[in-house]
Amino acid sequence: MNLKTLLQLFLLFSSLSILSIGGGNTVLPEMHRKTVDDHGWLTDKQFADVFAISQAAPGPSILIVTMIGYKAAGVPGALLATIAMMLPAGILVYLVSRVWARAKDSPARKAIEKGFAPLTVGLILASAWIMSKAADQSWQAYLLTGVCTLIFCATKINPLIVVATAGVIGWLGWL
């Protein structure tokens, strides 16, 4: 096993973890530069493909680092890259959430909870917009999104059933 590669993986992804302010996607350009251009762990095409796979697979899309780690140094590389990408940011969230819990009745926390709510809803609408753009939806897919939105808002049907049905519709090639 190549210890040097493992060390490089750990150092790279733990520093990207701290730099990824605003979410994992913000460090993708830097991740591409380091892993493809500097280390040559994978090709340009492979990077684009593992990105697409990680977006589609269930779970957090940051698991692209699991695939890069796997390509660079096998299963140990995959696990190490995943842990490195989660640990530093996770420690920071832990510290902030401790402060947050202690500030339970402070005016600052009340203001953040009330004031950030409209901003968060706006950001979520923005991410729905970006997801839809990224998926390059056809008019049939927009129609499906519209119908599903109505179902989610107006009924209590388990969303999993709706997503699975939509998957079948896509599989049949109707989108």
């Binding site: 997801m131 519209g146 939105t149 997503v163 599989w171």
Partner: peptide, 20 residues
Amino acid sequence: GILKGAAAAAVALTLSMVFK
């Protein structure tokens, strides 16, 4: 194909969260 359909529904779930 499956992903295309699932993604359309995932966008819908996100939109319904915006409404709710």
